[in-house]
Nucleic acid binder design. Sequence first.
DNA 1: TGCATGTAATTAACGCGTTAACTACAACAA
DNA 2: TTGTTGTAGTTAACGCGTTAATTACATGCA
Lengths: 142, 142
Amino acid sequence: MLPENTRRSLPMALLHAREAVMARFRPMLAAHDVTEQQWRVLRVLSEAGPVEATELADRASVLPPSLTRIIKALEGRKFITRNKAEGDGRRVVLTIAPAGSTLIDALSPERRVIYDDIEQRFGHEKLEQLLDLLESLIEGEG
Amino acid sequence: MLPENTRRSLPMALLHAREAVMARFRPMLAAHDVTEQQWRVLRVLSEAGPVEATELADRASVLPPSLTRIIKALEGRKFITRNKAEGDGRRVVLTIAPAGSTLIDALSPERRVIYDDIEQRFGHEKLEQLLDLLESLIEGEG
DNA sequence: TGCATGTAATTAACGCGTTAACTACAACAA
DNA sequence: TTGTTGTAGTTAACGCGTTAATTACATGCA
């Protein structure tokens, strides 16, 4: 059945939900001149160590063309370093730089506060339930 | 508590879920050279009749600057018409045109099939549950 | 070795999201 | 009537999403 009102439309609901959540994080990122995607890339590099571009794009949920632009921006600010992979001139290896680690460390506490607040207001049980449903939806459609 | 793996991160999960769902609709829209946002605007105009720009942007979940661009594109293809409101030279009234209605009618059956398929694979119960949780999340954060 | 095929990354083109600035008009008060 | 304040839309600037094309390098086969 088609959703009659847009509020019960799944694509719309997912869009609005994401907007609502990201609105909480955006000011923090904007204060440090980092976009949401740049932040995801930094986090992956921080947690996973040196990674090749393809894997980085996959882990950070960013498309290759976007990653190219993000790498340029982050490299320009010395948050990351970019090197060719030894043994394969096509591949590129990205590594987080000290300035990048510093930013991660600086923002993590604030990030924790925001996430905790969302979890507390929404409810731990409901959050787990929602994550389960989303995971199931992704599995089924992907 | 911070999500340790990105798969259990709420923003990520919402992003992926939306991606997964939209992937089903995108080919249909692309086949008719209509973007997702243009489609939302057309649907609102189709269901709600002539509407002013501000209300249209709100209903279609599109920001004003985006709406300006969308209006240009849709007007250029004669899918909608754009007129000044009588009595207030600032306001703009948008109306769906015959070509726009034709597109809506042409795509609605296909849209129904896709939506039904998602609901069947995911489960009616779970879909309702998911929509409830999303609505609750939006309420709490918005 | 040389050529075809495949792969990683980049570039290009276009549209939307986001924020801020700007224009045009309306409403209201002096 | 005039000047101020407020509102509706638009424009501008920048970054990302998306798709397609392109470049650089690897790999495999003759």
